[in-house]
């Protein structure tokens, strides 16, 4: 499971649709396995790439039942009826949709519609499955449940998936590898842990964790914050010169915990606060 993660307009969906063959890139090469599926000289059309996709809006054909949605592509590929029935049965079973096989998409809940979209993809047994922000149309509670269910299903079925999201928590939760995208380019491609612990640059650091990025200078293994009178921090192994200090929220402590850094004291007067119940951010001044 590879996630394409990045802010809006970073090119995630464009890359996904290029892989699928729904849009043509300007230049370059797209390979699927060993085969070139797109180059400036040759194009394999989308309908022949054997790639499945779960769309953001699910793209269920509203005039077909659940079973019709699943079998439509299989019939187009002229599979034998017993094969179609077997694939249909399996896909409906693993997605727990068998009781709904004769219902129309408009008769299903959002979560069930999403499962139909995944089942349609599973039934086609594609070489690669593409997920285009499939959870974005669900409410917060259902999104968490569906994410867990979807991941179990995908891993159980041993499918190869490229997953597009702009939600870093979602990407961290579902991915084996993450490609962080910025302005149409991949800024970092690594495991979720490596991206969290060793972001390639300030953009990745800023986008991934809500980290604080502090500019400064490294000299003799010590990092000095630029324009601040704070003590230098020990950063063994850092290259000398201008650098960025990335501070994770969980690494920050109130100044009282370390008397030595009393200059980073808590504000004496809190003027505003915001938070989600678990973590709070305070703003304030030094006035009494």
């Amino acid at each position: 499971m590879v996630s394409l993660l990045g802010p809006s307009g970073s090119g995630k969906t464009t890359l996904l649709r290029s892989i699928a063959g729904l849009i043509d890139p300007d230049r370059g090469t797209i390979r699927l396995g060993e085969r070139v599926v797109w180059s400036e000289k040759s194009v394999l059309p989308a309908e022949k790439r054997r790639i499945g996709m779960v769309f953001q809006d699910y793209a269920l054909w509203p005039h077909m039942t659940v079973a019709g949605n699943l079998s439509f592509g299989l019939r187009a590929r002229r599979l034998a009826e017993p094969e179609i029935a077997a694939r249909l049965g399996h896909a409906l079973e693993v997605t727990r949709l068998a009781p709904y096989r004769d219902r129309y998409p408009s008769e299903l809940s959002g979560g069930q519609q999403q499962r139909v979209a995944i089942a349609r993809c599973l039934a086609a047994r594609p070489a690669l499955m593409l997920f285009d922000e499939p959870l974005s149309n669900l409410d917060a509670a259902l999104r968490e449940d569906m994410r867990i269910e979807m991941m179990e299903l995908v891993r159980r079925e041993a499918a190869t998936v490229i997953y597009v999201t702009h939600d870093q928590a979602e990407a961290m939760a579902v991915s084996d590898r993450i490609a962080v995208m910025r302005d149409g380019r991949i800024a970092q491609f690594d495991t979720p842990r490596a991206i969290y612990e060793q972001p390639a640059d300030s953009f990745v650091a800023g986008f991934i964790g809500g980290f604080s990025v502090v500019p400064g200078t490294v000299r003799d293994g010590l990092f000095s914050v630029r324009g601040a009178a704070a003590d230098s921090l020990s950063t063994p192994g850092a290259r000398p010169g201008d650098g960025m200090l990335v501070v994770r929220p969980e690494d920050a402590r109130p100044a009282e915990a370390r008397k030595k850094h009393a200059r980073l004291a808590m504000p004496k007067q809190i003027e505003s606060r915001t938070g989600d119940g678990e973590r709070w951010v305070f703003w304030g001044g030094q006035k009494n």
Binding site: A20, G21, G52, Q56, D57, F72, G73, A76, A124
Partner: peptide, 15 residues
């Protein structure tokens, strides 16, 4: 119509 409806059909191998 959502363009994804025909895109989905294309990816299902439908001509």
């Amino acid at each position: 119509l959502a363009p994804s409806l025909t895109d989905a059909a294309r990816l299902s191998g439908v001509g």
